Simulated assay, not measured.
Amino acid sequence: MANAPECPVCGERGVPILYGLPTRVAREAAAAGKVRLFGCVVPTEPDQWTCERSHTWRADDDQVLIAVIDAALKRD
């Protein structure tokens, strides 16, 4: 996940946040640390990224977010 942004607080690599009921593939990606599952209730302005220290944030580039999620879920 080379394109993942760094946490603006601690500098750790960002991990994309997934909301909603996870599929088997999403659960496997979460177990591997490629995504983080945040449950079914989506906030009005949801964060998109988290880090190992559990900081959360939004980034400006949705294309990067989509690309990292697609790679984590092995979608083309």
Rank of each mutant, 00 (worst) to 15 (best):
F38C: 06
G14L: 00
D62H: 09
P5E: 03
G39E: 09
P22N: 08
L18G: 01
V35E: 07
R24V: 10
H55V: 09
P16M: 03
H55S: 13
M1C: 00
R36P: 02
T44G: 07
G11E: 12
L73S: 07
A32Q: 15
A59L: 04
P43D: 08
E52M: 14
A29Y: 03
H55E: 11
T23Q: 02
C40Y: 04
A31S: 15
R27A: 10
D60L: 12
E28T: 13
P46M: 13
N3Q: 14
C40W: 10
R53Q: 14
R53M: 08
P5V: 08
E28F: 06
I66W: 12
D47S: 12
V15D: 00
P16Y: 03
V42T: 14
V15E: 03
A26W: 02
A26E: 15
A31H: 12
G39P: 08
R53F: 07
C10G: 06
Q48K: 06
H55L: 13
G11A: 05
I69K: 12
G39M: 01
R58Q: 14
W57A: 05
G11L: 10
H55R: 11
Q48L: 06
L73R: 12
D62V: 01
D60E: 14
C7H: 12
D47V: 09
H55A: 04
W49C: 00
R13G: 10
S54R: 15
L18H: 09
K74H: 10
V15Y: 00
G11R: 11
A4V: 03
D62I: 11
V68A: 01
T56V: 07
L65Q: 07
R36S: 05
R24F: 01
P43E: 07
E52K: 14
E52D: 15
D60A: 13
R24D: 08
S54W: 12
P43V: 10
A30E: 12
V64Y: 07
G20Q: 03
P46Y: 12
R27N: 09
A31K: 15
T50F: 05
P5K: 04
E45Y: 07
I17D: 03
P5I: 12
A30I: 02
R75E: 06
C7K: 04
R27W: 08
W49S: 00
V42N: 00
W57R: 07
D76A: 06
V25M: 11
L73T: 04
P8S: 12
G14S: 06
G14N: 03
I17A: 02
R24P: 01
G33V: 11
R24G: 03
A67D: 15
P22A: 05
R13K: 15
T44M: 06
W49Y: 09
P46A: 14
E12W: 08
T50P: 06
C7S: 02
L73Y: 04
R53Y: 05
A4K: 01
P16I: 01
A26G: 07
W49N: 00
I66H: 13
P43R: 06
F38T: 02
F38K: 14
F38V: 01
T44F: 04
A30G: 13
R58T: 11
K34F: 00
N3H: 05
A67Y: 03
E12Q: 14
A30S: 15
Q48P: 00
F38A: 15
V68N: 01
R58L: 09
T56Y: 00
A2L: 13
C10T: 02
A67R: 13
A2C: 03
